[in-house]
Design a protein around this nucleic acid. Structure first.
Lengths: 240, 240
DNA sequence: CGCGGGATTGAGCCGAATCAATGCAGGTGG
DNA sequence: CCACCTGCATTGATTCGGCTCAATCCCGCG
């Protein structure tokens, strides 16, 4: 087992992940401490409040980050798609649960080794900063949604986000022609936890969007959007 | 006008701001491009979507970061206290409004110059990364509040946060003795926008907390908390 | 075919929003 | 000095969106 030197060059996310900041020589060093791991949908990856030695690039699948109150109420505070980075550097513990929303592949690093590597490679740290800033922007965007949007707007905004980030289904050009088809990476329950709603409300809103002709349900997990701009109108994306 | 070489050494936040990463020699260089600015409560500092050349350390006062929908709904997505950093590096525009919640003093830098400086001083970039990570943690914490907490819990959580971050009023030891007194840096309207509530609901919840004996209103902006732990109980801070 | 877990649908309720009035403090000008 | 105004905060009455509880439905699977 252990490291395959050639692996990074074939990695699907080589350039887009934080590793993109490194040249072939440097990446060899990082690869020395990398370890590939896979998780099944539902597997727990990190535990809130617990010490964790793991950092990772998400290579495939979607990871949900959740926080919860002691009475069981739960909120998904972030979704991690490829080629995003997972884990909290410079703290021994994780601040939230991380759970595989779908089957997941990670390229993991021990925290200490990765942090040393960061220290020796300012380029990599720069890249990580850029990534963290984007996540912060996204989180603030989400705060607007959680605090001020109606259930319908929340669901529409979520579908829009997935339409933009998740891989398309079927053959499709980026050219505007034809409906956008994609699979939802989350169950209704997860969508509810992400949007600050209940399962029932999510379901009702989806039905409503369907009957309005804004979306088309192929199956519970696969949908088709005839016009993204109509969906955008319903979602009320923010001003300016 | 222009730079006073000696100023940084007397700066109230010298060690705690991102500048803490720099030695006296380096800080002289940064000070060359720094400019002091003051704002009155209510002044706009950054405009959502607009190009902005400004970055800054908050030296005094509180800045609110808001996002809004085109129909006027508004959400405060972050509060910036001293010695926090304000502004978005590596993007030409700001993603949100920044507005002085109280009178504010900033130590500002032109974006381009600061970014060059960052590039030449990995220590500073490291510090900025640490700071950004903390902000992200805080934002996710807030997502849990916005998505899952009741109005009473939201208000209690907010008061608790202020109690911890805002300067105390009157003489007070950190030792547990006596009530905690402090001033609210936000109006009821701002609190509502921060908590995803209406003004009326915020007001009612404050009245309720008062009648429960959890807090004591000295004036609308000044309050006293006999027992922080009682407030914590009401706020339902999250599980381990 | 029956079972089980996720999703949908329905009925009723409740918490927070809305609409509307009143209170209160600070500032201004007669 | 007081009357008045203006902006913020409080309080009350009513409405409504989303939650709760509960019953089906649907689909994959043993």
């Amino acid at each position: 087992m252990a490291s395959e030197p050639a692996r990074c060059s074939m990695c699907a996310i080589r350039d887009k992940a934080v590793c993109g900041a490194l040249d072939p020589n440097e990446i060899k060093g990082l690869n020395q401490i990398a370890r590939w791991r896979t998780y099944k949908a539902g597997d727990v990856i990190l535990v809130d409040g617990a010490k964790s030695d793991m950092l990772a690039n998400v290579v495939q699948g979607v990871v949900k980050l959740t926080k919860s109150l002691d009475d069981g109420r739960q909120q998904i505070v972030g979704l991690v798609f490829p080629p995003d980075f997972l884990g909290r550097v410079y703290r021994p513990d994780s601040q939230y649960f991380a759970e595989a929303a779908t089957d997941v592949e990670l390229c993991t690093f021990p925290k200490e080794g990765f942090e040393r590597f960061l220290h020796d490679h300012p380029n990599l740290e720069h890249r990580l900063l850029e990534h963290t800033l984007s996540e912060l922007d996204a989180c603030r965007e989400w705060a607007l949604l959680l605090g001020r949007k109606s259930a319908e707007e929340k669901v529409a905004s979520f579908l829009l986000m997935i339409a933009k980030r998740a891989p398309r289904l079927g053959c499709q050009h980026s050219g505007e022609a034809g409906p956008t088809k994609f699979a939802l990476p989350l169950s209704r329950a997860d969508m509810a936890d992400f949007l600050g709603l209940t399962i029932e409300t999510v379901s009702r809103q989806i039905t409503k969007l369907k009957s309005k002709g804004v979306i088309d349900l192929v199956s519970t997990r696969d949908l088709s959007v005839p016009s993204l701009s109509k969906l955008e109108t319903v979602a009320h994306q923010e001003a300016a």
